[in-house]
Amino acid sequence: MSVNELKEKLAQVEQEAFKDLESLDSMHLLENIRLKYLGQKGALTEVLRGLGQLSKEERPLFGQLANQIKEKIQEALEKQRLVLEQKELQAKLSTEKIDITLPAIGNKLGHVHPLTQISNEIISIFGGMGFTAVEGPEIETDYYNFDALNTPADHPARDSQDTFYTNIGPQILLRSHTSCVQLRALEKQKPPIRIISLGRVYRNEEVTARKYPLFHQTDGILIDQNVTFGQLKGVLNEFIRILFGRPLKTRFRPDFFPFTEPSAELDSECLFCSGSGCRTCGHRGWLELLGCGMVDPNVLAEANIDPEKYSGFAWGMGVERFAMLKYGINDIRHLYSSDLRFLEQF
């Protein structure tokens, strides 16, 4: 066969291959086409067999030409393969569809109690201000619960904390506040001191929507040189701002606590009515949040800290009260009900 005849054949193979590819619409026929043209018994290979009849000079030129056509076909095959793959994927995707609104599968997650959540929040806010959490016993001695906190026996201040006494001994009681934890810590530490305690306390009270014979308190104390009442205001204002997520108007109202002097009650503008008066705040516009004050020099002296050199401030508050305010819980009994309908909301 002459060169021209071979060239013509090549052109014919090319033309046919492209024609076949164009009409191809299924992936599994792609391999058939490859074999038909490029395989060992394929059309192109067939043409190349005629190479031997050509002259030495003609061979490389023709070979070159044949290779170019082979590559062209290969390229076209690859291109068509991609097109078909896309087409098949699209076809598959368009048929595969599920009802995404069917229920989720898997273990239900448990919920963390709101008192745990608020406790962690309180400890972390004060932690950020350098206060370390400490713990103490719930069964306490009269000494730590009252005497060392400037509340001697037969002092009417003991009335405000109806105390449970125990069978262990006349001076062993269930702590009525967490301030005793501070005192135990003060005995072991030297100033500067920044501690916070959080724990369970007990008061001999009837169960009502607002009162429970046990609840939780958190107390903090800071003792150092040059500690002022203004710093107390600053620390507690910050705490309120972070806990409730916005700055609230506060006021420090003079009050009396045996272990602080001067003492104050911290009120904030009512969270629910912003001070205009509502049922929650008893139409006063203010919510009582916590008690605080400068540590009484007697308490410092009791812990062997020189009140002339050091001063300090302290505060105490009810954990339940903050949980109730923050989460809108209107009855303290919910917190101790173990009711799943309650727990699962947190």
Partner: peptide, 16 residues
């Protein structure tokens, strides 16, 4: 009490 200026304690301590 409200006239007492507000400040913050010196930030010299890290929590344990």
């Amino acid at each position: 009490y409200d006239k007492v200026p507000v400040s913050m304690p010196s930030p010299t301590m890290a929590a344990q």
